[in-house]
Design a binder for these strands. Structure first.
Length: 412
DNA sequence: TCCCACCCAGATAAGTGAAC
DNA sequence: GTTCACTTATCTGGGTGGGA
């Protein structure tokens, strides 16, 4: 006789939509309850008289977007805990546990479940009217931010074993093929312990950005159901911070004034700190480190910065300690590019600072360095067969810069 | 309670410019 | 070119407080 580990119950609740209860077939009848927030929203919206259209578990149309957002926000209200408990109680005893323990036995033994949150997913979907546009934006985002954020884990995972069939691109041209994939395409995947952030396409027109809490015990809150609304609110903050960081790094800018005052000393509290000199490799490593840690939902400490600087610069263990990191962080605090998170000893990057730091790195690495390098004598060789639009910009700039250098009398 | 990271102050190293 | 004085950057020690 086959041994059954667990039973799955699929229930349709009028308030919460589709619920899955996965229950162990033997005592103590441990159970997992899986809810879909989109289903809950859909049901609540219908009850509130809103019309919504869903596609690939994503709302693509609604009669009242503000109203729908308001309903979604109820999930982070304290009352949600009571409603969730009520929902679980409503189904788990009478419809699931009854197969192992009838109602009379349940009452006699005083059997009761204690609920806690284990996993949570929070996502934001962007619906594009043009699939091509979505791909262009997605590819640009990945190209620009991947190296700047030091995303080691940027993957392209296909739901199928084989890659999607893409027609061969014409030589010397770049383009985007838009298909209607039958698989989910993961493009961006960032891990922070048991928390991950993903950006992936959901069908042809939907770009989904998702926070996954693999284990709620790794968040600042308890796993108890009481903290569920706080957890939802926290996941929302994480997602928004991630989007902010991506946006700042992607569209970076440094003002003329900030550039001018960069080497000038500043003060933090009563302490005077030096200015920022990006010609020093150590400072460049620190700025890169801050950019790479900027998406961390919990901010970063001086110790984490020192570790990251050592790993980025390939420095030995005793070369750059946390005291030095704290000193460098203080310089950035003096410029108001980073700040302390409340009273804690952790830091977070300020949006303006993030833009400035990213701009400085881009200017140095992607503009000045390649142009200066290209002013030397170029070795004659075969032209590359594949070029991106950015290569054409570099070629044009190089030619103009060579003329400018000649006029200015700079030796090339 | 203990550890770690912060702040502050003082010490030291490095850089700069004037005088010789 | 060398020396010296001054400024600035960085490091270090001691005290302190937050958080595990």
């Amino acid at each position: 006789m086959p041994y059954v580990n667990h039973y799955s119950f699929h229930i349709w609740d009028t308030e919460w939509g589709h619920i899955t209860i996965k229950m162990s077939g033997h005592p103590p009848f441990g159970a997992q309850i899986i809810l879909n927030g989109h289903d809950y929203l859909s049901c609540a919206a219908k009850q509130a008289g809103l019309t919504v259209t869903k596609q690939a578990n994503c709302f693509v149309q609604t009669s009242d977007a503000a109203g729908l957002t308001k309903i979604a926000d109820t999930l982070s209200e304290p009352e949600t805990e009571g409603r969730l408990r009520e929902l679980c109680d409503r189904w788990i005893y009478s419809s699931c546990l009854i197969f192992g323990l009838d109602l009379e036995e349940q009452q006699r033994s005083g059997f009761q479940y204690r609920y806690s949150t284990y996993q949570l997913e929070y996502c934001r979907n962007f619906y594009f009217s043009s699939g091509r546009k979505m791909w262009e934006i997605l590819q640009r985002l990945v190209d620009r931010t991947r190296s700047r954020l030091d995303l080691k884990v940027v993957k392209t995972i296909f739901g199928f074993k084989n890659r999607p069939r893409v027609k061969r691109l014409k030589q010397n041209k770049w383009g985007v093929e838009v298909e209607t994939p039958t698989y989910d395409l993961t493009v961006f995947h960032v891990h922070y312990g048991k928390l991950s952030l993903k950006i992936y396409s959901k069908g042809e027109f939907i770009l989904r950005i998702e926070v996954m809490v693999h284990n709620a015990s790794d968040t600042p809150f308890r796993r108890s159901l009481v903290d569920f609304p706080k957890l939802v609110s926290w996941a929302k903050d994480v997602l928004e911070r991630f989007l902010d960081a991506l946006q700042c790094v992607d569209v970076c800018f440094i003002s003329d004034e900030a550039m001018e005052t960069l080497p000038e000393p500043s003060t933090v509290g009563k302490t005077r700190v030096g200015g920022i000199d990006l010609n020093r490799p150590r400072m460049r490593l620190v700025v890169r480190t801050i950019l790479s840690l900027s998406t961390s939902p919990t901010g970063f400490s001086a110790r984490e910065v020192s570790r990251k600087v050592r790993s980025l610069g390939g420095l030995p263990e005793d070369e750059y300690g946390c005291r030095q990191a704290a000193y460098d962080l203080k310089k950035l605090r003096g410029k108001e590019w980073i700040r302390r998170k409340g009273n804690s000893r952790r830091y977070e990057a300020v949006a303006e600072g993030l833009r400035s730091m990213a701009a400085l790195i881009v200017l140095r690495d992607d503009v000045i360095k390649p142009l200066l390098a290209a002013q030397g004598r170029l070795k004659p060789g075969r032209r590359p067969t594949q070029t991106a639009p950015i290569d054409a910009h570099y070629a044009a700039l190089r030619s103009q810069m060579r003329k400018l250098f000649l006029d200015l009398g700079i030796a090339a």
